[in-house]
């Protein structure tokens, strides 16, 4: 055994991943360039901008909204968004009376093709353990207080189904183009922990 300091370095997650990648590369099971490519896709190309385009289109195109609510997987594929964790996508729509909130109580299930990978809080015990039992309390932590007569629906992502919240289109955005609208739709609003705000004039 090596000394304590040395040992700590070697067993840290960074060292373990490095050794694992080296072993798998040596066995011909992974190619570091292919790993780089996946990292690049999930760091820069797949993300909530995709979902924002979906929402903006649903806001401006009633036919698309209908298709999205009927079959979200095929509706987002119309815009070119598909891939792992997107095969059973369900869109749920916020209204004046219903607010939807998405969680994965067991781990981290999340609709990758439209939102990318989940943020740290989504995967945290603090969020997962309270979103079902105390959704209004959780929303308050995000700075969102709903009127008492608004029904909160919590969707627990299962092994199969992934959810996308269609937030409400804010008042005062009637003249905005689809592109401009996509620019104001946030990730948090599509998980249901925030509302979309109209841009300040």
């Amino acid at each position: 055994m090596s000394g304590e300091h040395h040992n700590t370095d070697d067993t840290g997650p960074a060292a373990r991943v490095k050794a694992l990648e080296a072993l798998l590369t040596e066995k011909g099971l992974v190619d570091p360039a292919a790993i780089d490519a996946i990292v690049d896709i999930y760091e820069t190309r797949v993300g909530p901008r995709n979902g924002a385009r979906v929402v903006a289109k649903a806001w401006t195109d009633p036919g698309y909204r209908k298709r999205l609510l009927a079959n979200a997987t095929s509706a987002v594929a119309e815009l070119g968004y598909a891939g792992p964790e997107g095969n059973h996508l369900v869109a749920v729509e916020n209204t004046d009376r219903v607010h939807n909130l998405v969680v994965c109580t067991l781990c981290s299930c999340y609709p990758w093709p439209v939102l990318g990978l989940p943020p740290v809080w989504y995967k945290s015990f603090a969020y997962r353990s309270r979103a079902v039992s105390d959704p209004r309390g959780v929303l308050k932590d995000f700075g969102l207080e709903l009127a008492p007569d608004v029904e909160v629906r919590v969707w627990d992502s299962s092994a199969e189904i992934r959810y996308l919240v269609i937030p409400q289109r804010p008042k005062g955005t009637e003249g905005m183009s689809e592109d401009a609208l996509a620019g104001i739709v946030t990730r948090d609003s599509m998980v249901g922990v925030a509302k979309v705000e109209a841009p300040h004039a």
Partner: peptide
Amino acid sequence: ADHVFSAPWEARAFAIALKL
């Protein structure tokens, strides 16, 4: 807001799992 991984090793672990 822009970083889905907190460290490079997280990204590589994710990509290795997905690739395999």
